[in-house]
Each structure stands twice: as C-alpha cells, then as structure tokens.
C-alpha cells in the first residue's frame, strides 16, 4: 500500500465532505486537513531533504494547517456569522458534481506525464480536483466566508502542483505566495467586519445593492 496515495485519496474524499456539508466549522477543518497534507507532501516526495527544505515545509504546515484555519475560525466567532451556510446546489447535485469532478480529474490527470506523477498516480488528479473543487465551492456559496474557503482550497491545489513541479530552489516564490494568502485572509477579516457592520450579514447577494 502506498501511503502517499492513501493520504491523497483522503484529500479527495475531504472535497466530498466540503461539498456535502453546510456547516462552516466542518469546511474549515477540511481546509486545514488539506493544508497539512498538501504542505507536508514535499517531505515525502522529491529528493530535497536539506534543512532549509524541511524547515520550509514545517512552516508551511503550520501556516496552512493551523494559522489560516484558526484565523477564519476567529473571524466567525468575532462576526458571529451563522454557522449554517446553505449551498446553492442541493446535496444530490453536489454529490453528483463531486463524482463527475473526480472522474474528470482522473481523466485529465492522465494527460500529463510528469516524472513525479508516475510514482504517485493520484497527485495530478488530486491537484486538479482541488482546484476545480475550490471553484465549485466559490460558485456554490453565497456566504463570503465559504467563498474564501473555496478560494483557499483552490490555492491548496495550485500549491500541490507547484511544490511537485518546482525543485526546491523556488522556496522564495512559494513562500511569497503563502504570505500573500495569509495577508489576503487578514485583509478579508477586516473587510468582512466592515461588511458585517453595514449589512448585518455577509451574504454576497446583498452586495448587489451597492451597484448604484
């Protein structure tokens, strides 16, 4: 049994949870779990076991798995948004979308022939599923926080591809992106608080009233 593939299949499964759940804390936990796996993976694949590389991975795990989810969790607490966020698509439709997504990701993932992907066949499909799953979450939610979570899931996917493609020389770039995401989450927190003060809710449909 290949442990990396097992981990990756768990990540794929976590997308299902994020589709099926209408509770924000569950979504946050899913994102956190994906963050940990995605950023921890370079420790196992690739040949770069230098001290810098290890330290980089550990910091990423910390930020993706702990800091970002915690931040969002705190935002929820602060803004006291409803925990239940009903997705636009029904449960059965989401489930069907997930199945289609997994199948499509597996199909597209096979089109790439990458040296890393030959050992871990699930790598590319997982990355693609994460990106498109994030997009689906963005599409399927009105709640701003759920949308941010969708965005982070997408970012997880991109990171998964990025880390495996790039050799370890591009730490700086990766790290820069990570900091961007972190900053984005912080800014979002502030904006959300403002939105909340204006509208008493973070339903993006309400933002349409700002059109004029």
């Amino acid at each position: 049994m290949n442990y990396i593939d097992t981990l990756l299949s768990l990540v794929l499964l976590s997308i299902l949870f994020s589709f099926g759940s209408s509770r924000l804390p569950v979504l946050i936990r899913v994102i956190g779990f994906q963050g940990v796996v995605v950023s921890g993976l370079p420790l196992f694949i690739g040949n770069d076991h230098s001290l810098g590389g290890m330290a980089f991975s550990l910091i990423t795990i910390l930020i993706r798995g702990l800091v970002i989810p915690l931040c969002i969790y705190l935002i929820i607490r602060r803004v006291a948004i409803r925990r239940e966020v009903a997705p636009i698509f029904g449960h059965h439709a989401s489930m069907l979308a997930w199945l289609g997504l997994i199948a499509a990701a597996a199909f597209i993932g096979n089109k790439f022939t990458l040296p890393v992907a030959t050992q871990n066949v699930l790598l590319m499909p997982t990355a693609i599923a994460l990106v498109s799953g994030g997009l689906f979450l963005l599409m399927g939610h009105r709640n701003a926080i759920a949308m941010v979570l969708g965005y982070i899931m997408m970012e997880n996917g991109i990171y998964l591809v990025g880390t495996t493609f790039s050799s370890r020389t591009h730490h700086i770039v990766e790290f820069g992106i990570l900091l961007d995401v972190l900053a984005g989450v912080m800014i979002m927190a502030i904006i959300l608080q403002n939105i909340k003060q204006t509208f008493d809710d973070v339903d993006t449909d309400l933002l349409q009233t700002l059109k004029e």
């Binding site: 299902l16 489930m95 199945l99």
Partner: peptide, 13 residues
C-alpha cells in the same frame, strides 16, 4: 460515492 471513488482510484493505481 465512496464506492465510485474507490473504483476511480483503483483504476488510477
């Protein structure tokens, strides 16, 4: 869904 998923993953493996 789980069974479907297992089928897809098996095919990949």
């Amino acid at each position: 869904a789980l069974a479907f998923f297992a089928v897809i993953v098996t095919l990949e493996l």
